[in-house]
Amino acid sequence: MATHAGESLTASEGPAVRVEGLRRSFSEAGGVLNGLDLTIERGEFVALIGRSGSGKSTLLRALAGLDRSVSGSGVVEVPERVSVVFQDSRLLPWRRVLDNVVLGLSGADARARGLEALAEVGLGGRDQAWPHQLSGGEQQRAALARSLVRDPQLLLADEPFGALDALTRIKMHKLLENLYAAHHPAILLVTHDVDEAITLADRVIVLVDGVVGSDIRIDLGATRSPGDPRFASLRAQMLAELGVVESVEEEVA
């Protein structure tokens, strides 16, 4: 998948993300990340799953450069242009949607690019709305537009659809797939949802006790359906990794 080479990365032909021996801890007692190694190729879509407290968000914040007050060690290499999508849309309530999308951008064409990004996420014509006038799903679309307009080489998404209802989430999956196909950044998607991970990602990493528990390649092709037996077996494998008893799953199914 990583064939679409980012033009500004020609100087360094390495992967998009390289993490070696990453340790992070919030207290003396124990670390959240315990010597984690991770490589993400350019243009690769990686999903990161794990139980609460497994260090998913800590890893993402380390990659985003938001972990100043945390003690730790290790090597972290990320590209120059990194965008972050949070679980909440984090739109500034006092700025209109377009101003939120182009926040911090300079240049004469910033607004034109912002409008383009809004049209791409299906919010064309809502550029002058206030954030509170948008629905939860629309707010998250605006947040995606704000990330994409920066032409990221790496997109970090911290449970971006976690607060949305099930129907909206399915639409957002489609949108993210389309945006990924069009722009091809490397993506690290942190999620609780095993199905979401299998549906969207090229690779799923299960984080266990602050290290990579397993690294599973998803070879299901472009159209993935939960009805596919291979889908079901991948899901069973991941749930087992996460410590969910399988018989319960079968009873439900």
């Binding site: 949070f86 700025r95 926040l103 911090g104």
Partner: peptide, 25 residues
Amino acid sequence: SRYAELAETVSLGRGAFVRHVVLPG
């Protein structure tokens, strides 16, 4: 404080942070 975090991820400078986040907030 999440807005300050957002401002950091979109690389706002001090001045832009005051103008877009602090004063309106």
